[in-house]
Design a protein around this nucleic acid. Sequence first.
DNA 1: ACTTTAAGCGGACCATGGTCCGCTTGATTG
DNA 2: CAATCAAGCGGACCATGGTCCGCTTAAAGT
Lengths: 199, 199
Amino acid sequence: MNLPLAPTDEPPQLRADAARNRTLLLDAASRLLSGCGAADLTMESVAAAAGVGKGTVFRRFGDRAGLLIALLDHREKQLQAAFLSGPPPLGPGASAADRLHAFGPAVLRHERDHHPLILASRTDPLRNYAVPALHLRINHIAMLLRQADVPGDPELLAHTLLGSIDTALVHHLTTERGMPLERLEEAWHHLVTRLGAPA
Amino acid sequence: MNLPLAPTDEPPQLRADAARNRTLLLDAASRLLSGCGAADLTMESVAAAAGVGKGTVFRRFGDRAGLLIALLDHREKQLQAAFLSGPPPLGPGASAADRLHAFGPAVLRHERDHHPLILASRTDPLRNYAVPALHLRINHIAMLLRQADVPGDPELLAHTLLGSIDTALVHHLTTERGMPLERLEEAWHHLVTRLGAPA
DNA sequence: ACTTTAAGCGGACCATGGTCCGCTTGATTG
DNA sequence: CAATCAAGCGGACCATGGTCCGCTTAAAGT
């Protein structure tokens, strides 16, 4: 760990050279990533490809997971836009219940496309919960649950719902156990319906 | 990875010296563990404390996670005995619904006691699903769900239920978010009730 | 422009997980 | 008991994530 400043966030203002190197590194990593598996992406190779020293990578991203998460964050923006401000039923405009139903499949598809990176970024099991993207999802779901008057603890239910479509779980079920994605979508709908049904 | 024999299992029969070294290693690891955090347990120190070479540790346990899981497996036996053959309501003798209700708190308590090791053993997010102990839990819950005539996909519901009391999640919620364990237990009961309630 | 200073940089260095391969030894067979 | 041989062993070796610290430089003040 090595975050000498700004207690919880990245310092909002990077010096010009630092900002340049940051995008240089992100680009280099992306480029390397499309030529090999995420597992083969070494910090040193990224630094070399970006033409900077290894120390710079660590200074900027903290550790390997940090780099991968930053890479992921970028791709995640699309999904976030879709459920925060995109068209219904995922975005605002539909009922909370409909938005909940739409959320699962959307995340499932997003994870299908990005699971190698997502899985590679998860070395520390606790780190996941610190990822801003996850927080956003949790809060969003919790909000929808409240809007839909679903009984129970909204925050915990949100965690439970998201847990049921967690990348690692889904990957395990689809590859090791041969379950089709449709079965998982069905289970999502069942779960949402079940939790939302009037007592 | 380094499992030269027996495709999916440990070879059931270890040579005498190998078996001896295995328990030597497990003991040494246990001993070291009670003197420092799991994070400080290095493979080399375990080997040294057991009086064997480093290669032997890897040959026996595959990798670090394998060693930690083996350590855990031993402690897990108690919990397994409790829900497989212990007294009701956790063990057989109570209704399936009652057993389900009892299961959450039991796991929660078990995880409270062992979370440092459990978390340390989780480096590869996919590896978890290969742990025999987890399989056992999943199958057990799925069976109870069927017995209780809970509607929906028993296997997926089992994953969802267990996910809601996953060690990493619980640790995050109790330490980062300051939630008392009671709140998690309540949520468990709510979830079980909700899923089991007649449509 | 000149000074100042803290952010940034880089690459030598360290720790540790994991591999390899030649040697040793417990089991098995006759 | 001798011979055989696969399982086991150990420690040198390698790859890589992560740290450290002296040097450089962008940026803000005067």
